[in-house]
């Protein structure tokens, strides 16, 4: 066990955990930020996507020891009032079915729009290809990303 000082959604947090603990479980079990989801644990599904200094990463494969000193953003901190253009577009297009994958989808899309505010269809498809949606909401996800991009 070791103490780690983390910056999550702009706030300082301290946890005492095994250095190999993935950020996913630090967030979910130790910090009660459960919006970040567990899907596969091996960086294959994207359900656990968070931002590390603005870049989308798979928190299930990111040990807490390498997250110290970085700005971490989770779905809970993407916007103050749940009004990030992507979150609004997601509601406008009524994207979710079960909803379980959607935090990861939104976080991946948010990192994409940070880098590339006007992505083409193909760029959206590439960026989101690592995020599985078992319910098959892919078309609505793409449409919502485009709507959000227009508003940025």
């Amino acid at each position: 066990m070791a103490i780690f000082n983390l910056t999550i959604n702009g706030k300082s947090k301290q946890v005492d955990v095994d250095p190999n603990t993935p950020m996913l479980w630090v967030l979910r079990d130790h910090l009660d930020l459960v919006g970040t989801k567990f899907g596969c644990g091996i960086a294959q599904c994207g359900a656990c996507t968070i931002h590390l200094d603005g870049t989308a990463v798979r928190s299930c494969s990111l040990p807490v020891s390498s997250a110290e000193g970085a700005e971490i953003t989770t779905i809970e901190g993407l916007s103050e009032n749940g009004d990030h253009p992507l979150q609004e577009a997601w509601i406008e297009h009524d994207v979710p079915q079960c909803g379980y994958c959607q935090a990861g989808q939104i976080m991946t899309a948010a990192a994409l729009l940070n880098d590339n505010p006007k992505p083409s269809d193909e760029e959206i498809e590439n960026a989101l290809n690592g995020n599985i949606c078992r319910c098959g909401t892919y078309l609505r996800i793409k449409a919502a990303v485009k709507t959000a991009a227009q508003k940025l």
Partner: peptide, 13 residues
């Protein structure tokens, strides 16, 4: 719209 839509997109438990 989905009554849980807002909770889903903001990561509520």
């Amino acid at each position: 719209k989905n009554v849980d839509g807002k909770k889903i997109v903001t990561g509520q438990p």
